[in-house]
Amino acid sequence: MRTLAAAVILLMPGVAGAVSAWQLSTSANIGLSSYQDSQLADAQSELSFFVDGQYLDGLGIGGGYIRRDRSDTSANGLVTNIIYLGIWKTLYLDMLPGKMSLILDGYRSDGSVDQSGQSKGANVSTQVEIDDMEVISPALVYVNESKSYSVDVSYAESRIYSVTNNLPDVTVRQWVPAVSIIFNDQFDRLRLKYYHVSLSNDSRAAGVNQTAATEVKWTHWFSTNDTGLIDMTLSLLAGDRQYGIDRDTRRIDSFAELLKKAASFGVTWGVNQSSIFYMYAGLERYDDPGVGSHYETGYLYMGTKKKW
């Protein structure tokens, strides 16, 4: 009788087997940028796909692929392929109540320029390899027990290898300390990040080998509502940031341009119980120390994430 009751309960949807040890999530994203006053590029499109797996509450792994297509002013296309791999482990320590997470992210980026032209009356397309970039980025994140604040620090070491030109290889070191204050019954978060980036040589950046920038990000979460809105985020950045690695957004900048100012606004909607849709729009201002010009980009980035 007891066995029968157990079987009945186990068959009840939502009772047993509802919480699996592994939680898998996938996301697919598209980004479109347009350039203004740039001597190098007109537009850029980006496609990315990520898979993340979480085992119980303490371990996670992730992987992803990003492809960027930048069309430049001389009709040559610049394609960048980026592979992402990450792992994290959460520690729960009595001496420091809350959560401590150790994160290790890695990226590999390789780019090529499509140099189309005429040769003996025929169209010829030649792919020319440009710099490769490898990034290894450990991070330490602490969230206190009541979730009223978090502090984190991340380091990223990027190695940029010359493939076809004669420029020396560069090592880029980035430190990002950050603090988040969570308030208003956990409906709001203010996040402050400081980027410090140093380059082992300035061969690609025309005399710039150290940059610093500050970013402030405000996120507001909505309570359950009919619009389906989950959160909105406003982000502002000022200073100089070069070869930036943003752990929050899994964005890596593989070019030497200096990001001077950035502003973005984004919203997330709940599509259903297991899926969300997000959209960000932003403006960025860059200096290109190589050609001594300034330019602006406007972008729209959207994606969807599903938990399986």
């Binding site: 309960i9 186990l10 919480v19 509450d57 729960y92």
Partner: peptide, 17 residues
């Protein structure tokens, strides 16, 4: 640690429905 806790709940329910 909701997932880990849930695993233990489910193991109890399997024996004591």
């Amino acid at each position: 640690r909701w997932r880990e806790a849930a695993q233990f709940a489910e193991s109890v329910i399997a024996e004591s429905p």
